[in-house]
Design a protein around this nucleic acid. Structure first.
Lengths: 135, 135
DNA sequence: CTGTATCCCCCTGGATACTG
DNA sequence: CAGTATCCAGGGGGATACAG
């Protein structure tokens, strides 16, 4: 995880294209596919753990926990434990920082939905082309 | 690769949150960390292979090829072979579809750069908090 | 120059079982 | 309910060598 945490304080705006640039780590945020969906849900409203689990079908507790931990560590998500509850209850919500990225991520999500047919068509075309070429 | 290509034509807009939804595949586009950087470069102007390789420091030929192939298959990138050249020369550029996603991806890239200090601070804080808690 | 082919390590991420 | 712990298969991805 802590791949490039040392000796990296130089950073010029407009250039994420440096092998040692730590913003590569930040880019990896999007890398774990679940983050986009989790943040998308939290953007709607705060969620409790199980609630979030149900809201993101297919995710396992492990991945949900892992994703939330990472997001919490990165300051995008706030974890609020309701101690008075029995059984325990934990609520997750976006921090201010988290809010700032939810819009861009939503754009990606929307794009995925909107252009899905286009992408699938392109794939079918590509694969077919590959087949006819080989024949 | 062809994880969920069959029996999936139902898709309601506004809901990427279905376990079997194929748009999860599309989300994975962002998943491979290199795509964001590669598309960012192609957004500036078409690149030849080696040129692109140099423009995205740290990427290996294998990953560059793999990334470009995937993007080509998904219809985001156009691959133009300049056959008359010796040695061969290949130029990559964004397709129309590719153009439509470059803006959202750029937003992510910008965000990564802009909020890097914030994220790093949050991490340090989180880690320190974890240490003092355990002690 | 633009790839393809191998080897191989490691990490992601799924399934399952167990705690407070 | 909200986790943690463990096992384990698969794939991402790096290094290297080779080909057209």
């Amino acid at each position: 995880m802590e791949t490039t945490d040392a000796a990296l304080d130089d950073h010029d705006h407009g250039d994420a294209y440096c092998a040692t640039c730590p913003c590569r780590d930040t880019l990896d945020l999007v890398g774990s596919k679940w983050t986009v969906l989790v943040i998308g849900r939290l953007q709607e409203h705060p969620h409790r753990f199980g609630e979030l689990r149900r809201a993101v079908p297919g995710i396992t507790q492990k991945m949900l926990t892992q994703t939330l931990r990472r997001l919490e560590r990165d300051g995008l998500v706030h974890r609020h434990v309701l101690v008075e509850h029995r059984p325990p209850s934990v609520e997750y919500s976006l921090t201010e920082l988290g809010e700032t990225i939810s819009a861009p991520l939503e754009a990606i999500r929307i794009w995925s939905e909107d252009h899905l047919p286009h992408v699938r068509a392109a794939r079918a075309d590509f694969d077919e082309r590959a087949d006819t070429t080989s024949s």
